[in-house]
C-alpha cells in the first residue's frame, strides 16, 4: 500500500471494529446467565463467543499493519461506542446492542468484504460467516422481547440512547478518511450510503413491533432526524459521554 494516510485510516477503522466486537462479546457473555429464557441464554453464550472470535481475527492483522496497540485485553482504553462502556443493565439493552450496535458493525464489515487488501478481505470473509446467524439471532430476540408486555417500551428506552450514536458511527457525509480508503479500494461506500443500508437492515423489524426510530421512510430512502454531531468524537468514533449509567430506571408499564 503506497498511501500512508489510507493505511493509517485502515488501522484506525480496524481497531474500532475489533474493539467494538470485543466489548460486545464480553458484555453479551455476561448475559448468558440472566437471559429471560434458558434456550436464549445458551444461544447468547454461543453468540458472545462468535463476537470475541471476530475480534480475535482482526488483532493479529493490525499487528501486521504496524499497529502497536495490541489487543483489547492488553489495554485499559478501548475504542468502542459509548453504548458498550458499561455492562448492559437490562436484557432490553442486550437486545438493543445485538440489533443496533452489531447491525452497524456488520454493515461496515460487509463493505470491507471486497477490499483490495487481500489479507483483510480473507479475514473479513471468515468473520462474516457468522453474520447471518448473528442477524437472525438479533431479530429473533427483538420478537421474543416484544412478547413480554413491558418489552417494547424497555427496548425503545434502550434504543433511544443507542440508535443516534450508531447512526453517527458511520461518520459525517464526505468524511475525508473514508473517501481516501474508498479511493484506495480498501472499502466500498461512504457514511451516507452506510447509514441508509443500516436503516434498511434494522428499521423494518423495529417498525414491525412499534418502536419509534429517529428516521422515517421517504420513498426508497430514509430521512434521518438531526444527529448529535456536537457530541461526536471522530477520532475515537463514539459519542462523548454522558453515557447512560447502568441500572437506569426501567419503564415497566405495559402499553
Amino acid at each position: 500500500m503506497s498511501d500512508g494516510g489510507a493505511q493509517r485510516g485502515l488501522v484506525n477503522l480496524l481497531v474500532v471494529l475489533a474493539d467494538n466486537k470485543w466489548s460486545l462479546g464480553r458484555h453479551l457473555s455476561e448475559w448468558a446467565v440472566g437471559a429471560p429464557v434458558l434456550e436464549t441464554g445458551v444461544a447468547t453464550a454461543a453468540i458472545a463467543q462468535g463476537h470475541m472470535g471476530q475480534a480475535r481475527v482482526l488483532y493479529p492483522l493490525l499487528e501486521e499493519l504496524g499497529s502497536t496497540l495490541g489487543s483489547a485485553d492488553e489495554r485499559t482504553r478501548r475504542y468502542q461506542v459509548a453504548a458498550l462502556d458499561h455492562p448492559f443493565p437490562t436484557w432490553a439493552h442486550v437486545v438493543a446492542a445485538l440489533l443496533a450496535v452489531d447491525g452497524a458493525l456488520n454493515s461496515l464489515l460487509l463493505s470491507l468484504r471486497g477490499s483490495s487488501h487481500e489479507q483483510l478481505a480473507r479475514r473479513v470473509g471468515r468473520m462474516l460467516e457468522e453474520e447471518r446467524f448473528q442477524r437472525d439471532f438479533a431479530e429473533g430476540r427483538v420478537h421474543e422481547l416484544s412478547a413480554f408486555p413491558p418489552g417494547t417500551a424497555q427496548l425503545q428506552a434502550a434504543l433511544d440512547a443507542v440508535l443516534p450514536e450508531m447512526l453517527c458511527w458511520f461518520g459525517p457525509a464526505g468524511e475525508e478518511g473514508v473517501a481516501a480508503l474508498a479511493a484506495a479500494g480498501l472499502l466500498d461506500g461512504d457514511g451516507d450510503r452506510w447509514r441508509q443500508r443500516y436503516l434498511d437492515r434494522v428499521g423494518p423489524v423495529l417498525l414491525e413491533i412499534g418502536v419509534d426510530l429517529p428516521a422515517r421512510r421517504a420513498g426508497s430512502t430514509w430521512e434521518i432526524d438531526d444527529l448529535p454531531w456536537d457530541r461526536w468524537n471522530p477520532l475515537q468514533r463514539r459519542l462523548a459521554s454522558p453515557s447512560p449509567a447502568p441500572g437506569a430506571a426501567l419503564p415497566t408499564s405495559s402499553a
Binding site: 463467543q49 470475541m52 475480534a55 485485553d73
Partner: peptide, 16 residues
Amino acid sequence: STGAYMTVVSMIQDEI
C-alpha cells in the same frame, strides 16, 4: 486471556 475467557463461556453454554 481472551481465549481462556472464551473457553469458560463455552463451558457456561454447555452447563445452561
